[in-house]
Design a protein around this nucleic acid. Sequence first.
DNA 1: TCGCCCTCCTC
DNA 2: CCATGTGAGGGCGA
Length: 411
Amino acid sequence: MAKAARAAKFSPATVYILGGLHREAMTVERATKERLKANQRPNDVVTRVVGHMDLDYFYAQVEEVEDPSLKTRPVLVCVFSGRTNDSGVVSTANYVAREFGVHSGMPIVIAKRKLEGKDPAVIRMDHEKYEEISSRVMETVSQMVDVLEPTGIDEAFFDATSSTGGDFTKANERAEAIRAAVFQKERLTCSIGIGRSKVVAKLGSDMAKPNGTTVILPQDTETFLGALPVSKLYGVGPKTATALGEMSVVTIADLAKAAPSELERRFGRKSAGYLLAAATGTDEDPVVGGLEPTQFSRIVTLKRDTRDPEEVISQLSDGIEFVHGRLAASAKACRTVSAIGILTNLATKTKSKTFEAPVEEAEVIRETALGLFEELGRSVELDFRRVGVRVSGLSGVKDQSSLSEFVGSVR
DNA sequence: TCGCCCTCCTC
DNA sequence: CCATGTGAGGGCGA
């Protein structure tokens, strides 16, 4: 496997963390190798080997692979809302574009302004294409690890505890082999983090990108985490970071020392427990494969703002078909249907209905959504800018776990 | 348990 | 300035 890694023609920007104090890029120092060796474990593994794989600037990279001439140009993969010519946002920008301050979520017009005279490639997002490539990558990676848990179209956690015997040297080689295999098959680069928990692995891949690997040894975890700002932690966004700041919690080390009672008061029991565990790298959430989605939704931007139920449903028609299609394709039924409305001021309003027994027909979803939008439209003072439909409370149509529903099912 | 809201994820 | 889309999970009141 190590040979496969070397044979690949991608840049092996392997990064190791030594006590969290500095990063060694491009080469593996002797000292690092010795640290890794000293960490080798026998069969009685007490520490998990958890990895996180993240495809680099995924959508834009796919476009580059398809058309290599794009590599030297700024690339914007965009979601066009269809409202006006260029309304919409940048979904993914390649690193050339990022150099000019362009990032995801940025309005297309703003991004174009920043790239004036830079010959940007503005490409419409092709979700199906990315989905297909993603599936192939996931399949490749799943064959090289114990358990794979995709958490998005471009990322996945994996567990390699038993196949590495808990040996982080082997885990590092495995990570490089995975990156080599993905590159060899798809010409796509990705980044991998290895650590003793999901939180640590995720931070590792983040630090490694683009095109690198970070291994955080169990014994280095505390030092590594401690120096980082809390905002780097998975699950800590702007709101949480601000609230933590009010408690004078800035670094992860601060968080580890924070008063559990105050964390609970501010964030609730579950979140407080998560934050404390994450801060010490002792989060124990296992890597789980074969997870099924628990909801499907589709949100569209209206041609013009309105809260007329008929017009909403008419514009949402394809969206409802799509959601129903997803349901049918996965042989599932739903118990809850929700109407989602995003107002002109971008506030979100939802209304939902839960049935006694699961439903699956497009007609039922449509009629339910219509009723919900009638109520929702009456309850707001502003028009909708975007509207959507969601089905949740999913169950397999032929699910043995819901025998009670079996009675009414076909055949 | 349901219904609704909030926060976060992605750059 | 302009502001997409999908899904997960938690809190909380009823």
